[in-house]
């Protein structure tokens, strides 16, 4: 047998080993998170090595503790979920409101400094957020915006707009310019063209973008920690969970239930977006 044949055979087996390892390594921690959140804590401490528990052993006590309002002796995650949803949705909507016209400008319009805008955005994207954290911490303390969800939302917008413009621009440049010319002939103004012609065509890209911004805002931790930590009523889920882990009397299974509550919305959105991305992008390409 020559080298090519030997290697091909070895790699054919090795490939399946790699795939199996990848699936286990990426999925197992999430499975374990879910499993632990359903097992009673006494049982986990006795048998930490078990990776299976039948439905008969499951308990929802952990979830009850996590979701019950703080006033009733629970951890009040419903409140945190609402905060997170509010901040993330507001950040998503406002980011898109700024980035759609911005991306259109960068993709289509010739204006002074167009070539430098890219550089600025790349710099923002790659900038150490810890460096930004200090002045914003000081500034927001002075303005009284620290401890407010609105302040946090503004920070998220600033951090996501540049990437959002970059992603949308790439999509907008694939839409043929002749469509806009036709719209102009029909008497549409530039803003009307953007709203009635470009936006419907770019809908899949806009949706994917919205999900991306939402995920970033939902998962963010540092700024939430810096700005909101003082008042429990303002906590986001990420922050609430991190603070929960500091509590001594909180059991690890409750912590895992909190993690599941934090992760599930993102996983659902992600798998929805996965389909939307592939379907949307291929459908949008040839319809123009």
């Amino acid at each position: 047998m020559d080298r090519a044949t030997v290697e091909t055979r070895v790699l054919r087996v090795l490939r399946w080993v790699v795939i199996a390892v990848l699936v286990v390594v990426t999925l197992f921690p999430f499975y374990y998170m879910l499993l632990l959140s359903l097992r009673p804590i006494e049982e986990v401490l006795q048998n930490p090595g078990r990776i299976w528990a039948g439905p008969a052993e499951w308990t929802l006590r952990t979830y009850r503790e996590v979701l019950t309002p703080a006033g009733d002796g629970g951890q009040g995650f419903i409140r945190f979920l609402a905060n997170s949803a509010m901040v993330s949705l507001a950040a998503t909507a406002l980011t898109l409101l700024a980035s759609i016209p911005g991306a259109y400008a960068v993709a289509r319009l010739r204006f002074v400094g167009r070539r430098h805008v890219h550089f600025l955005f790349l710099a923002v994207y790659l900038f150490p957020s810890i460096l930004l954290a200090i002045p914003l911490f000081v500034l927001f303390t002075r303005l009284g915006l620290r401890g407010s969800l609105a302040g946090l939302t503004i920070v998220y917008i600033a951090q996501t707009v540049p990437v959002s413009i970059y992603m949308l621009r790439n999509y907008l440049t694939t839409i043929p310019e002749s469509l806009e010319e036709a719209a102009a002939v029909d008497g549409y103004s530039r803003l009307q063209t953007l709203r009635k012609v470009i936006l419907p065509l770019a809908a899949p890209a806009v949706m994917a973008n919205a999900l991306y911004v939402f995920m970033i805002a939902w998962n963010e931790f540092l700024f939430a920690l810096l700005f909101l930590v003082e008042d429990r009523a303002d906590w986001t889920v990420s922050l609430g969970l991190a603070q929960l882990s500091g509590g001594i009397e909180v059991s690890k299974t409750v912590l895992m239930a909190g993690s599941v509550v934090l992760t599930v919305p993102i996983v659902i959105l992600f798998f929805a977006a996965e389909r939307l991305l592939t379907e949307g992008l291929t459908a949008g390409a040839d319809k123009g």
Binding site: P29, F30, Y32, M33, W218, N219, F221, V237, S238, L241, A242, S245, L255, M256, S259, V260, L262, T263, I266
Partner: peptide
């Protein structure tokens, strides 16, 4: 979310 995965 980073908080959830670090805890696991």
């Amino acid at each position: 979310p980073v908080v959830a995965v670090t805890f696991v």
